[in-house]
Write a protein that binds this DNA or RNA. Sequence first.
DNA 1: ACCTGAACACCGTTCAAGT
DNA 2: ACCTGAACACCGTTCAAGT
Lengths: 172, 172
Amino acid sequence: MSPRKKVNRQAIAEAAWQIVEADGSADLSMRTLAGKLGIKAPSLYDHVKNRDEVIALLQTRALEQFGEGFAAAGDSVREKVLFYREWALANPNIYPVVFQQFLQRELITPGLESQVLAQVVSAAGGSHIQARAMWAQLHGLVDLQLQNRLPADADADATWEQVIRTIENSQH
Amino acid sequence: MSPRKKVNRQAIAEAAWQIVEADGSADLSMRTLAGKLGIKAPSLYDHVKNRDEVIALLQTRALEQFGEGFAAAGDSVREKVLFYREWALANPNIYPVVFQQFLQRELITPGLESQVLAQVVSAAGGSHIQARAMWAQLHGLVDLQLQNRLPADADADATWEQVIRTIENSQH
DNA sequence: ACCTGAACACCGTTCAAGT
DNA sequence: ACCTGAACACCGTTCAAGT
């Protein structure tokens, strides 16, 4: 429970990531986070301004990791879409923290958000409007799936195929 | 602050709706809710099992209101989509409570969810898969907009038009 | 610089007690 | 049946105090 290695912003980000990944962001309290690091909650404030900054650390990490993977995925729309789906479903507790909470824009690495956005635009064929429409569809489907909102008998694969087809068709 | 009319489940739902609408669901505490009704927090538990049940009351109300409006909107895809957009943006604090939180399925009115779903399927032309793809797109775009995730210069109208065109095209 | 215990104003919820 | 005050185990955060 208390490895007590070196407590710094990186260690805090790592511990917070593990807690969220395992139990969801609701279970990320300053006390449990401190406990995982082997210190008491008030000590966290020597490294970090407040809980929002911890969230911002997670958002930065997640945007970086997602951005790298998205860039490394194949060039076709299908491959980009499938990567988006896989990353989101592989990180079901992290996903909402990056893509559904208010982005702490003044706290995350400058340029990181627009860099990821540019990749989405490029994947959508260069049109900003098509990029937003595509992103909305991917984000919406992921969210409905994570929140268990699709009917129990929903064929997820078929719906994703439909989404891919829709996007491909809208590009020419 | 304390009208003290009749405290029952309906009055609780009404007061909770007002609080969420005005300040967001994070500000809906059992204490503020009780205060608005002119009683103390523990008294709420004579009418309601817990906070989750209050959320369920809101989800029921919202599903009913949304469902009625969606049904009453015109028959074309365009009209359905525009209603969805308007309802969501007119109820920015209620929307996430119904469409982004876990649905308390055992607490909301039975059949209500599937009734609304059926309307979406019908609006999408009868195909379940197309309905899910359409819903994902509407939900995703609303969420990105509510969370301020679209670039500052984003032309929202144009993106919605793109979404409408995409859906129309995918139906034949 | 980094950590601590104690404290503050908040939570949801329980419970004994009143009417 | 409906309401209350007091209490419990939680929050985020501050602060004086230690090293």
